[in-house]
């Protein structure tokens, strides 16, 4: 299968001499859901944010479909960003815009600033948005303001916004951490099925090992800024988990 994303020797230090990521090597190909697990503060979030350059890497290379994106800026960066969908822990919807406007935000990279201001989007974008609203079950909410939605509804809108970009990879930074268990499962199901339907890889940061086991095709375990496990969920043993999270009391 063709590679989508190749990360080599990726290092990030917010303060010089105190790296959060210490030389990450990872490859993602065209299909499947990858769950990145690890305790808080281990650099999972930094890793996922570096991929679309919301955070800048200190060293290393990120090759996205043949484009080296660790050093690009300006227009080039924007053109790569619009091919990468991103879902956030706290949904990060624009609260005072309607659900439809939040979805159309996903097309801003393709529409001129003037047309965007006048809310003039191509018809196919609007049609696509309605299709996605059908998929996430919020067809009747197009005109509702984002701040009137529940947490689960907001996250579904967040996913739909990312899908509006017709992304070639979908990143999700702790998408279920602010949600109740039942909604979390629904969100994971949605991410998984959308990855399959669109034939794109999905990379999810997640605390919950059980959710990761249930939905992931591949699990990456991180601790102390390094990858310590990389393989299918079936191979993930308690020993691995001890290494990833440290201690063992929580396993019982």
């Amino acid at each position: 299968m063709a590679a989508v994303l190749n990360i080599r020797g990726l290092t990030k230090a917010y303060k010089p001499g105190m790296p959060v990521l210490k030389g990450i090597d990872l490859d993602f190909d065209e299909r499947g859901l990858t769950a990145i697990i690890g305790s808080s503060g281990t650099g999972k979030s930094t890793l996922i944010r570096i991929i679309n350059r919301l955070v800048n890497p200190t060293e290393g290379s990120i090759l996205f479909k043949g484009v080296e994106l660790s050093r690009i800026e300006g227009r080039q960066l924007r053109e790569v960003r619009r091919r990468i969908g991103m879902v956030f822990q706290e949904y990060n919807l624009v609260e005072r815009l309607s659900v439809m406007e939040n979805l159309l935000t996903g097309r801003l990279g393709y529409v001129s600033a003037l047309d965007a201001w006048r809310r003039k989007f191509p018809e196919e974008d609007v049609t696509h948005a309605y299709e996605l609203l059908d998929i996430i079950g919020l067809s009747d909410f197009a005109h509702q303001r984002a701040d009137s939605l529940s947490g689960g509804q907001r996250q579904r809108v967040g996913i739909a916004r990312a899908l509006m970009q017709r992304p070639e990879i979908l990143l999700a930074d702790e998408p279920t951490s602010s949600l109740d268990p039942k909604t979390s499962v629904e969100i994971m199901e949605l991410l998984k099925s959308q990855g399959v339907t669109n034939g794109i890889p999905v990379v999810v940061n997640i605390h919950d090992v059980e959710l990761a086991r249930r939905f992931a095709d591949r699990i990456v375990g991180m601790t102390g800024g390094r990858v310590v496990f990389d393989g299918p969920p079936a191979q993930l043993t308690d020993d691995h988990l001890k290494m990833i999270y440290g201690g063992e009391g929580w396993l019982q």
Partner: peptide
Amino acid sequence: NAMATVPASRTWQR
């Protein structure tokens, strides 16, 4: 309002 207008034609007005 949204329910009335949406299914008929899938255009969107702010």
